[in-house]
Design a protein around this nucleic acid. Structure first.
Lengths: 332, 332
DNA sequence: AGCCCCTTGTGCTACGTAGCACAAGAACGT
DNA sequence: ACGTTCTTGTGCTACGTAGCACAAGGGGCT
């Protein structure tokens, strides 16, 4: 079977303890012994058993990023930003996909094969209740991502979705749009959708525009954006601007416009949210809200590492920055 | 600290062994005892420690998917296909991103925090040598993905890149294109790029066309596709068709065409590779080679599970299917 | 000379789990 | 009545590691 520290010790004529020291505290071992033991380690191909190590250390060096879907570019962008932050601290990122299944999201937190396998969890949950999260945060290090409001139990990093949505909508208004649609509301959402809806409504009502005339629900993927936009464009008085609550829906909406010969931004200005790469390479590049993903990653990792180190105390909330990036889809 | 099986045993007035049985072999325990112990488990919130469990079982229930980049849609598509296949077998997928860093790819295999943390590894490596892989496959269960040719040491699932590229090129030729470009060759590649180049060249030469006139290197992302296509279009006799070795480059190429007022498919027909969702929602939907990702996932998991179960023997090679999906970017 | 400290090495144990080997009692057949 | 088998439960140990507590030896200082 696998080579153990004991095998090395036997072969090198030292104690197992010394082998462990050579691996973990080389400074503690005399030069001559260290070199001899190291030679045996290399020769036998000894690798410390990670399971035993984790059991002993109560630490695995693994951090999990739990997201509903991996094929949402926003999440893979986030993962890319997180990796260097974690590497700096000798931690490894692994990604776990829940498909938005609340069952599975809960399983990640309460136990299953996953929970304490990891030193900490970065969680972007869609369908958990505040109580679920609260309970989990008491048990293990967790940092929440995304604009959901979970109460105060756990650390939390997110952009201010209301402010961001307000900025996006203001941009369409200042550009001269008057019949402005919003796609992405979700009836029972208490999170992302709710905040973005609120920001949109505030901007619209401030300017005396009807916020609800062109407001539609949406599923946050391309197909949904295309379908919703399509049916809006097929009405007698279609909108002349649309704020899609994420870039994927915006790309779907663009596709719907193109297939109907609607000019962007001439007939219809579009603003998205997330700043994914696709948006920059669309036929008409996409105006969007760009959350500061690097800052989100940095702050989330910092807070999580503190929790892993044993920090106790109430949940903290960090607001990440964002920026309105104006591109062709809303140019004048 | 955390509740252990011993705590439960004490509280329930049974042995630790019986607690273990209630959790793992409920049938072995009498109904009355089982219910009583289960009640104590629920009350105390006992969760088996995964590290101890892994150490004891020599199994963690975790399978790693190792990819160069997560924000390449092909990989996230693949991950999505893998998850249900693994769930069926009570395995959990975690994704590890290497950034194509050979150092890190090797670390995943030879040890580090990662290696035997996982029961098995699905590896899509860019920069490992055949020797690296050969050595790793001898040590732990591995299935390789992607069209690289690593020798015969490990199991391997991939589409026949040469055949697929041949089909894509034939399609452009039959459509009537005569000045056909290929983007994505890589000088020193022994994998994906080489196979796709070979298929392209075969199709071109069969038809007496110059395969190398419009052949260019490329980085497999949108930026590279846009840059390369752009400079081709700026020549006096630009190509009238292009086969991009993946969809991302094809989307970049489209963007380059649009910004120059080149009509797709009128002036330029485009074919990509991977069938990512972006391609279906582009202004001009993208013709592409669609690898049978579900089959790849199914076969890869099946082979890996056999290896985890202890199957020994030489590496096997499975060819996955593919399909040419004709969309607007090459329509007549 | 006597003392202390620093360096280098070791035996032993705990981390929390799963399962071998076994025992006591019940159920069953002859 | 007796042996056999089945059910239900238990004590003990190993998985492979890290670190506490300690010991032996050598050097420097007063």
């Amino acid at each position: 079977m696998a080579v153990t520290a004991r095998d090395v010790a036997l072969a090198a004529g030292v104690s197992q303890r010394t082998v462990s020291d050579v691996v973990n505290l080389p400074g503690r071992v005399g030069a001559e012994t260290r070199i001899r033991v190291q030679a045996v380690i290399d020769e036998l191909g000894y690798r410390p058993n990670p399971h035993a190590r984790s059991l002993r250390n109560r630490r695995s060096g693994l951090i999990a990023l739990v997201v509903p879907q991996l094929d949402v570019p926003y999440f893979s962008d986030l993962a890319r930003c997180l990796i260097p932050e974690l590497s700096k601290r000798s931690l490894t990122l692994v990604v776990d996909q829940t498909n938005g299944d609340p069952e599975r999201e809960r399983a990640v937190l309460t136990g299953g094969a996953v929970s304490s396998t990891f030193d900490g969890v970065l969680l972007n949950a869609l369908n958990l209740t505040a109580a679920d999260v609260e309970a989990a945060a008491a048990t293990q290090p967790i940092v929440l991502l995304g604009e959901r409001d979970y109460g105060t139990g756990a650390d939390h990093v997110a952009v201010d979705g209301t402010e961001a949505a307000y900025a996006a909508t203001r941009h369409l208004i200042e550009r001269g749009c008057t019949r402005i649609a919003a796609i992405g509301r979700q009836e029972h959402s208490i999170g992302t959708a709710m905040q973005r809806t609120a920001g949109f409504v505030r901007a619209m009502e401030e300017s005396g525009l009807d916020a609800f005339r062109y407001m539609a629900e949406g599923e946050y993927d391309r197909a949904s954006g295309a379908a919703v936009m399509g049916s809006m464009l097929d009405t007698t008085e279609p909108p002349d601007g649309v704020f899609c609550f994420n870039d994927l829906m915006a790309l779907g909406a663009m596709r719907a416009a193109w297939t109907r010969g609607v000019d962007i931004p001439g007939d219809l200005a579009i603003v998205g949210f997330d700043d994914i790469e696709d948006g920059r390479y669309a036929k008409t590049s996409l105006t969007t809200i760009a959350p500061d993903k690097a800052a989100i990653a940095r702050d989330a990792v910092e807070m999580l590492v503190e929790r892993v180190a044993g920090l106790d105390g109430p949940g903290r909330r960090v607001r990440a920055g964002f920026e309105l990036v104006v591109r062709e889809s809303s140019a004048l």
